[in-house]
Amino acid sequence: MYQPHVFTLTEDGYRGPAPSWSTGVPSLWLVDTDRAAEAALLLAPKILDASELARVEKLAFPADRACYTAAHLALRLLLGARQGVAPEAVRLTRERCPSCDGPHGRPATGGGTHFSLSHTRGVALLAFAGAPVGVDVERVPEARVVQEVSAQLHPAEAAELAELPPEKRPTAFARVWTRKEAYLKGEGTGLAGGLAREHVGTGPRPVGPPGWDVTDVAVPGGYAAAVAVRAAGRPPAEGDDRRK
């Protein structure tokens, strides 16, 4: 399990180290978006671009606006530190989708840095690496959600959940969900790739799909998180990699 760095947002921005990593090991950063909300409100007009600010305005709830704002400020500040540019100068784009070739694949930027961002109310998680990477953080769901969605998972994962006592299923479901989504985001397909396609496991140790390393991430109680990184020197699960 990876222990992420804690990202602290201040009214002056960020004064910590830039993301750095060794081969196959991502650089992970955790943001308490509630704690960062006040500073984020002051910094957002100076750093976020027009599309990001418009997205904030469309969110109905203050907690969601604070979460999105803090997460995207952290992304720009960390990428800016890595690239040696001002955070507002960071250029964010989208790669082509590997499934349909549409303009909604993995988020990307210049400079050879691969990154991924996930947020849910109260927490954001960011990953940076020298290879394709995906990250996901989620709240542990209610039991009814587990019951409604479990059948959509890989048959082996659905069977694993069914064998657990009911009180242990939400935590196990949160593990498999974050592992699965981290992997699918790393591939660039997202949930459109289907929840049943690969087996990543519900137990304490993830099962990495071919060509990927999947690892759980330490996050506050009530949440689960995982990161998936393209393994060096190993091919992707399916055919040619169109996401270089």
Rank of each mutant, 00 (worst) to 15 (best):
E148L: 15
S51R: 13
V25K: 04
A70E: 12
V90G: 02
E181M: 10
V133R: 01
R91H: 08
L117D: 09
V146H: 04
H5F: 04
A156T: 12
V25R: 02
V25Y: 04
P103Q: 02
R96V: 07
V219Y: 12
A232C: 10
R55H: 01
E95M: 00
Q83F: 02
L195V: 04
H5T: 07
A231Q: 13
A131P: 07
T69G: 01
D213G: 13
R243H: 08
K185M: 01
A172S: 03
F173G: 04
L77C: 01
D32I: 09
L30M: 07
Y223T: 01
A182F: 07
A143K: 08
E163R: 14
G221P: 09
S116C: 14
L77S: 00
A192Y: 11
E181V: 04
P235V: 01
L164H: 04
A37T: 11
V56L: 03
R243D: 10
L79S: 00
V135E: 12
L125K: 07
V137M: 09
A39G: 03
T10G: 03
S20R: 07
P206F: 07
R169S: 02
E160Q: 14
A71L: 07
S118Y: 09
G112Q: 15
V133D: 12
A228Y: 03
G201D: 12
P19H: 11
A70R: 14
A127G: 06
L125Q: 06
H114L: 01
R205T: 03
V207P: 15
S118H: 02
R234N: 01
G221A: 11
P45V: 00
A228S: 05
G190L: 10
E52P: 02
A71N: 08
S27Y: 05
L73G: 10
E148V: 10
D240C: 13
D213K: 15
T93I: 03
L48V: 10
T69M: 15
S22Q: 13
H119M: 11
F173N: 00
A224C: 07
V227T: 14
A70F: 15
P166V: 12
D49R: 10
V135F: 01
P45E: 00
G211Q: 02
G221K: 12
S99E: 05
E238W: 10
V214N: 00
A108Y: 05
A156I: 15
G84H: 05
L92G: 02
D216T: 01
G203Q: 13
E95V: 08
P204E: 06
R205I: 08
H5R: 09
A192T: 06
K168G: 01
E181I: 15
L59W: 14
A60Y: 13
D32T: 04
R35T: 09
G239E: 03
V135W: 01
R242H: 07
V6W: 15
D101A: 07
A218I: 06
A192R: 14
A74S: 09
Q147E: 13
H114A: 00
P220C: 07
V90P: 13
G84S: 04
K168S: 07
A232D: 05
G190F: 11
E52Y: 09
T109G: 04
D34H: 06
P98R: 05
A39R: 13
L126Y: 10
K244Q: 02
Y2A: 08
D241L: 11
S27R: 14
V135L: 04
F61Y: 12
E181K: 02
P107S: 07
A108D: 06
P19M: 10
A224P: 10
L43M: 06
A196I: 09
A225F: 09
